[in-house]
Every structure is written in structure tokens, then in C-alpha cells.
Amino acid sequence: MTAFYSIYRGYFRTALVVQFQYRVAMIIWLLGGIIEPVMYLVVWRTVAQQQGGAVGGYAVNDFAVYFIAIMLVEHGTFSWIMWEYDFRIRMGQFSSQLLKPIHPIHSDIADNIGYKFLTLIIMAPTAALLAWLFNASWQPDARTLAIFVPVLVLAFLMRFFWEWSLAMLAFWTTRVDAINQAYFIVVLFFAGRLAPLELFPQFLQRVADILPFRWMLAFPVELLLGRLTPNELWLGIGAQLFWLVAGYLVMRVIYRAGIRRYAAFGA
């Protein structure tokens, strides 16, 4: 455990130093993560105002809170590994990772968390600014906030395992960009980035329940908004745990198969 602690500390340090080197790139990434939810916020807010103050169960204020929360949770759980893996394999970086006596996922997790912490300096005030601009009022109770922390960690980990697994398709195909694009569209819909899932037709809501994406993003946000019954909360945590374990197992299987393929074809 202490060994892991010092490894992660090393990775964090590296991640922070590297991010500082690329401040401009970092700001551009952040802007993307801010602009997208704000866009949907503006659209839905306008629609709600024109429909007499609410759409589905969402009032004007709910939309503001929802999308600000989406922005934060998306920031907390997103990864960029899918855009990197292919490059890593083809440029031979993967070989040097394989030579190290540690699973390569650790440096990716640390890298991701390092970036998240660093950029929180910008994300937190941005969220406050947006809340002020859109007049969002939100009064969570302490219990909700306490449950939110593990729910967010679960969301992060399960999303990370799944995206890491998907990224490994680069072992088999050079067309990872197409796969990534398809994945992001699915996430856009089924994770609740485009609109709260409650506004979807019943049928699509049930589909979203079965898929893993809702539990990565919409679920923690709905928790923050206080829209979940205790039953729904526990079911959701159960779903997160299920997808976490499944993602972990899938990651292991694909990793093993990927390595075998890599080792057969050469680097």
C-alpha cells in the first residue's frame, strides 16, 4: 500500500508538471467542457420559459442546476485515454510501459486525477459564476453531499474502466476515431448530457437504465438535485457497483488479449 502511495505521488507530480507545461491546451480543453453544458442549459432554459416555466418535471431553475452539475460531474469523470491509446501503441510508448513492473492503468488514473485536481481551480469558480449568472438556487442537505462523494468515485472508476477497455480496441483496429465518435454520441444521449433522462420517452429511459452510461453521469447529478427516491438511490449504487465490477473484468480480459495480440505482431 505504501508502495502504491509513493508510485501515485510520483505520477501526480509528473501529471501536474506536464499540465503546467501545456497551460494553453489545458484552458482550451476546459473551455470545451464548459461551453457544451452551458449551450444546452441556455437552450432548455429558453424552452422551459416559453412553455410557461417548465418542461417535463424540470423548471427553469432545475435546468440551470442540472447542467451546472452535469458540467462538474462530467469534469470529474471524463477521460481522454481513448484518444491516446492508438498513438501510444503505434509510437512504441506502449512497449516501455510494458517493461515496467506495474500495470499501465495506474499512471493513467493518476494522470487523470492530477489533471482534475489542478483544473478544479478553474472549474469551481466557473460553476459559481454560472450559478450566479443563471440565478440558480440549490440547497442540498448534508446527507446528499455525503452520499455524493462515493457515488462520484464509483462513477469515475466505472467510466474509467469502460473507456480504458474501449481504448484498447486500438490493438485490433486503426479506425479508433470512428469508434470514439460513436461512443461519444451514445454518451451524449444516454448519460444525460444532452437533456435530463426524465424528459426522454419511457422506452428510452428504460434503455438508459440497462446501459452503463446513465450511472456514469446522470445518476450522480440526479442525486445532487434531490430527484431520487431512497429506492432509486440504492438501485443506482447497485447498478454502479455492477458496472464497475463488469468494467474491471472486461478491462482485464481485453488487456490480456490485447497484449497477446501486441506480442504476436510486434511493436
Binding site: A3, S6, G10, Y11, Y22, P101
Partner: peptide
Amino acid sequence: DIPVIDTFELNRAV
């Protein structure tokens, strides 16, 4: 992007 000694430190941990 990082000083050589920092890579060394990383290897020490790994």
C-alpha cells in the same frame, strides 16, 4: 516534459 531527475524519481517509485 519534465526534468530528468523527476523521471528518475518516478522510476524509483515504480
